[in-house]
Amino acid sequence: MHELSLAISLLDLLEERACLDAFERVQKIILEVGELSGVSIPALRQGFEVATKGTIAEGAEMDILEPPGTGWCFTCEQTVAIKDPFRTCPGCGKSAVTPTGGLEFRVVELVVS
């Protein structure tokens, strides 16, 4: 449910950039939404479509990169791949893993005019 709030935050960011970088339309947004970011991509797309109606970003294409989830296991002393930020290490099954990658939720690049 929070994806609509996130889409509005994204729109705020785009409108701020439109001032700073003097553009009038956003044609494409390249986003990074990490596997462990807690952001649902279909819900974000839907929220963005609703939030941007009548704005500089209406109809903008969204390219989403999904960095994989990784974490550090203090027992195995190595980085392991994880699909879920709050599970025990898939290697040793003992200790909780501290997420280190895949938490991103950011704009990488814009195509504007």
Binding site: L13, D21, F23, Q27, L31, F105, R106, V112
Partner: peptide, 13 residues
């Protein structure tokens, strides 16, 4: 049309 590189967190604001 141009590209702008941002690398900015959406929740940065």
């Amino acid at each position: 049309t141009r590209r702008i590189s941002l690398e900015q967190d959406v929740l940065a604001r």
